[in-house]
Structures are given as structure tokens and as C-alpha cells.
């Protein structure tokens, strides 16, 4: 009986080796592994074997079955591999399922970058209302009534002494009214001017205001801070200059220019052939402003600065008409 098992195994191996097609293989299966195949017949034969032989026979038969089945499976899968019709490869150039792409408004992008730089320098962020009183917008900021300085900012009025703020500077007053020094804050927001709409100007625009009040703050430090900002924002290689200017709420007042990054300082249309771009106004907080908020100008000094966002965004993104910023044309917005 054991010999027969061994013999069957050898025959199986020999025949399996000859197999070339799946049809041949099926013949082998029917002959050996099927319900009435040779191996099944051998199992059947075990029933008549002597009891003492049964364990050895059983073991041998099981081994035979496993061994032949395994070899059969291996052969089958190898034949299937080769016999398989060639599959058309998946077209990886098909487009991905589209997802909408969100965008941040370019003005907001510029504002956030400016904010980030000042926050890294220890400035907090404060806000105030757009609808302001004459007092916060002008009076407390040392704009005397009937002073020509008021002409610098054409105002939109809501009611008597109530107006749309012409700059973000009133937030300085609000911050100082609620807080004692040291104060170090930036104040971003909208400002409004009664100006006709053109490629260069709009009735409303954004500013970022800055304020630092403490013991011993100097003009020298104003320069230091703003230069540090400008180098981060415009690049460390920029050249800059501070020149005297006039704002009623600061004295000494200064405007900061940087070398025009369009022409590199050689002079072009953007910098009006001066080689310089005006980037911000600044100055030491006027003692009258401190008096208005109840700070002692003998004890504290400080600086303030303000800059427009739209112009910066226009320069950065090469936009030549300010109006397109607020048309909110999606074809425009998606470029950012």
C-alpha cells in the first residue's frame, strides 16, 4: 500500500511536469485530485487495511494529498499568470477628481504678513470702530479745529461730528484710553476718504497703525523698529531713508522711503522717477495726544506709524488699477 502511495506521487509529479495548458492540468486534477481520482481511491483503500497499518497509511496519505494539492495549486497559478489575457493598464493621466481651491484676498495676504512681522516683535493687535467721532478721529489727535491739517484728509460725515474714520489712528486713542503704558500694538482696519474713485484712489482702503509707548522710547528706536520691519517685509538688502514730514499727532514726524524695488532705484514710472517709494508715515507721539488720553508726556514717550495696504499689495502683485481689488472678480481672486 505504501509503495502504491509513493508510486502515485511519482506518477503525479511526472504528469504534472508534462502539463502545458490549463486543459492538461484539468486532466491531471480529474485523474488524481477529483472526488473519484486516484488519491480518493487510495483513501478508499485504507478502509480495508489492517488496523495496525492505518496510522502509518493515514499519515502517508495525508502527506500525499497535501503535497500533490500544493504542487497542483502552484502549477495552476503559474499557468494562470501566463495564460491571463494582457490587461489594459490604468490610465494614470486621467484627471483627479477636482476640489475647489480656496484663496485669500491679496489685501488680506499683505495685511497678514505685516501683522505676522509686528506680532513677532511683540506687538498686540487691536481694533476700533469705522464710525468715529470727530474727537477720536481729529480732536484727540491734535488736529485743531479750523486747521488746514484737516484738509489733508477729506472726510465723509455721517452726522454732525460723526464720521467715517479717515485713518486708523483713532484706535491709538482708544487703546491708550483703556490701557496704561507700556502699550505696543498694531491696529489694522479700513479707513475712508472723500475722494473720487480712480485707478489710484478709492473711497475706502486699509491701513495698519502702530503704536509703542513706554519710558524712554526714542526716535532712534522708531527708526530701528521700522527698519527691522521693512527688511523683513521688503527684503534685507533694501536701502531706506527717513525724511521730515508733518502729521498733527506726531512730532517729530517722518516718512520712510525705501529704494524702489521695481527699478532698483534708477527711477521709473512707479516711483515717479525718484528712485524711492514712500512706504509709511511715522513720528514721535505728540505730547498733546498723551495729554488727551491722560498719559504724562514727561514720564512717557512713544512712537506711532501707519501704512497703507492697497498700495503695497498693488506693488507686490503688479496691479496697476486699485479698483480691481474690490471688484471681487473670481478670475482675479483665483490668481492669489
Amino acid at each position: 500500500m505504501l509503495d502504491k502511495i509513493e508510486h502515485t506521487k511519482q506518477v503525479f509529479i511526472t504528469e504534472l511536469q508534462k502539463v502545458v495548458t490549463l486543459q492538461d492540468l484539468e486532466q491531471v486534477r480529474i485523474k488524481f485530485l477529483a472526488r473519484s481520482g486516484e488519491i480518493a481511491v487510495l483513501f478508499e483503500g485504507m478502509k480495508t487495511a489492517a488496523i495496525s497499518e492505518k496510522p502509518a497509511l493515514g499519515k502517508a496519505l495525508n502527506e500525499l494529498r497535501q503535497c500533490t494539492q500544493a504542487q497542483f495549486d502552484e502549477k495552476k497559478s503559474s499557468l494562470e499568470q501566463t495564460a491571463k489575457p494582457k490587461e489594459v493598464p490604468f490610465d494614470l493621466t486621467l484627471p483627479g477628481r477636482p476640489k475647489p481651491i480656496g484663496t485669500k484676498h491679496p489685501v488680506v495676504q499683505v495685511m497678514e504678513e505685516m501683522k505676522r512681522i509686528f506680532i513677532s516683535m511683540g506687538f498686540s493687535v487691536e481694533t476700533g470702530p469705522d464710525i468715529e467721532s470727530d474727537y477720536y478721529n481729529f480732536g484727540a489727535l491734535n488736529f485743531a479745529p479750523d486747521h488746514p491739517a484737516r484738509d489733508m484728509q477729506d472726510t465723509i460725515f455721517i452726522a454732525d461730528k460723526i464720521l467715517l474714520r479717515t485713518h486708523t489712528s483713532p484706535v491709538q486713542i482708544r487703546v491708550m484710553e483703556k490701557q496704561q503704558p507700556p502699550v505696543r500694538a498694531i491696529m489694522p482696519g479700513w479707513a475712508y476718504r472723500n475722494e473720487a474713485t480712480s485707478a489710484r484712489s478709492l473711497v475706502a482702503f486699509h491701513q495698519i497703525e502702530g503704536l509703542y509707548v513706554d519710558h524712554g522710547v526714542t526716535f532712534s528706536e522708531l527708526k530701528g523698529t521700522l527698519v527691522a520691519f521693512a527688511k523683513q517685509f521688503y527684503g534685507s538688502s533694501i536701502k531706506y531713508r527717513f525724511r521730515p514730514s508733518f502729521f498733527p499727532f506726531t512730532e517729530p514726524s517722518a516718512e520712510m522711503d525705501i529704494t524702489c524695488f521695481i527699478c532698483g532705484g534708477k527711477g521709473c514710472r512707479v516711483c515717479k522717477h525718484s528712485g524711492w517709494l514712500e512706504v509709511l508715515g511715522s513720528g514721535m507721539v505728540h505730547p498733546h495726544v498723551f495729554q488727551a488720553v491722560g498719559y504724562d508726556p514727561e514720564k512717557y514717550s512713544g512712537y506711532a506709524f501707519g501704512m497703507g495696504i492697497e498700495r503695497t499689495a498693488m506693488l507686490r502683485y503688479n496691479i496697476d488699477d486699485i479698483r480691481i481689488l474690490y471688484e471681487n472678480d473670481v478670475r482675479f481672486l483665483k490668481q492669489f
Binding site: 501683522k115 506680532i119 516683535m121 511683540g122 506687538f123 498686540s124 493687535v125 487691536e126 481694533t127 490701557q179 507700556p182 502699550v183 505696543r184 489694522p188 513706554d214 524712554g216 522710547v217 526716535f219 532712534s220 528706536e221 527708526k223 530701528g224 523698529t225 527698519v227 527691522a228 531713508r241 527717513f242 525724511r243 521730515p244 517729530p252 517722518a254
Partner: peptide, 26 residues
Amino acid sequence: ARVYGYNNIETKTHASIDFSSNVRTD
């Protein structure tokens, strides 16, 4: 300051940065 020349004034920064009031309402 003007006659002295703004650009002759040294550019420096204060070292005593105090972060305690650094609140971001936005």
C-alpha cells in the same frame, strides 16, 4: 532733529520687549 538730519540719527531697537500684553483679538 530735522537740521541734525533724520538719517544721522542712529537706528536702534529697545531690548525690553514685554510680551505680557500681547493679546490677539483677531
